[in-house]
Design a protein around this nucleic acid. Structure first.
Lengths: 215, 215
DNA sequence: CTTGACAGAGAACAGATGTTCTATGAGACT
DNA sequence: AGTCTCATAGAACATCTGTTCTCTGTCAAG
């Protein structure tokens, strides 16, 4: 099995996990194709057959959106801890603001300050946390100075997602993630800052919501 | 509402919860019909519309297996953990989405659809309401397609505020307000649209918050 | 170079699926 | 009775969706 194959398979597994997390239902074959950058549903179908034969996913033949990860599939993505936070029954939940982020730089964790904000259920999960935006570092993503962004802890992310990524031993940053051939591009949401390239990044969370108080 | 109606609705909610739990994906309209003993998908569809209007479920129009219970739907089934309902003095209120606004044009009030969202207290008042943004008409104010804006009813506004203004007998619009000598300028938050000038405008509300769900 | 395996694209198809429209029947109310 | 509301059925439709088939290009092994 080549390196490329492994990447593609992992990407598809991630897409299934990611798609399920987003909408609450597993993705269709064509949605997976979009997520991993394939043009033909047949190509995805081919991979799904392989993945099912390998015991990483299960499907109900012919039924729409029936694909799901098996325990082995999840463990391969190291998702075992993060899953199943979906059905929490509150219209809102109190989340803690854990730090702030400025100018495309590293995230600055709050040491002593403690602030919490009620976040609507439909744009958060129970384990989400908040970051406060400083400056115009996220302006191209329609995120302004003083906005709060809701981050859901997750090790998987889709192309184009805005993610919290660990790029150095002690540096965590908030950027838009794009997978390119053989590397990962972390794109600041502000044209004044240049993208950064890494062979691999450690995704810690995904942006799932924005809150703004206007004065 | 008769006893029979209540039973049927509860059964449908149960079917959604049950179907989702069993297979990992929400059921289709026809699967719900089977589960609750209805012969026609249209009958289920009719109930689903009612349930969505009542805020007990949510759907993505046209997408298969996209039905899911809201917090209120789950609480009606008493699926809540006892804990969550008892603790947490939630600093949020449930506000209703009353319409949508597109392309600098008039506000389009929802006739039947009813959607409600929990909004943090710090960016709302009890009498606030929500509008859903369509298109990029507010893009220069960092408000994107699909965002919810929190409107606080008010007859007064400061210069530069984004306001809901009544400009004609039957036309209400969302724009940035500037007072100039002898007239009022209503400035769309998108350079593609020209400002409008009025001798006087009737302010109905002021933008006080923005909510965005990122997927 | 030839061959074989395979990822992928593209087209096509059958069945699934959400939605709409019309009609019917049962209750409730006047 | 007449009228209105509403749950339900049934048919029809457009789109979604999984699947299959064929073809092409790539890459590694012989």
């Amino acid at each position: 099995m080549t390196k490329h194959d492994q990447d593609r398979k992992t990407r598809i597994l991630q897409a299934i996990a990611e798609g399920s997390r987003r909408s609450g239902t597993p993705p269709t074959v064509r949605e997976i194709a979009d997520l991993v950058g394939l043009a033909a549903p047949s190509a995805v179908h081919h991979h799904l057959e392989t993945l099912e034969r390998e015991g990483l996913i299960q499907r109900d033949s012919g039924l729409s959106r029936s694909v799901r990860l098996t325990a082995r599939g999840r463990s391969l993505l190291e998702l075992d801890d993060a899953v199943e936070t979906t059905n929490l029954p509150m219209a809102a939940r109190e989340l803690v603001v854990v730090g702030q982020i400025a100018a495309g730089g590293p995230i600055e964790a709050y040491e002593e300050r403690s602030e919490s904000v009620a976040v609507p259920e439909f744009m958060s999960t129970a384990d989400s946390y908040l970051l406060k935006i400083r400056g115009d570092s996220m302006i191209d993503a329609q995120i302004a100075d003083g906005d709060y962004v809701v981050i859901k802890p997750s090790k998987v992310a889709a192309d184009g997602d805005i993610v919290v990524a660990q790029v150095e031993e002690n540096e965590v940053t908030l950027k838009q993630l794009f997978r390119e051939s053989g590397r990962v591009r972390l794109q600041p949401a502000n044209k004044a800052y240049a993208p950064m390239y890494y062979p691999t990044v450690n995704v810690q969370g995904v942006l799932v919501g924005v809150l703004r108080r206007v004065h």
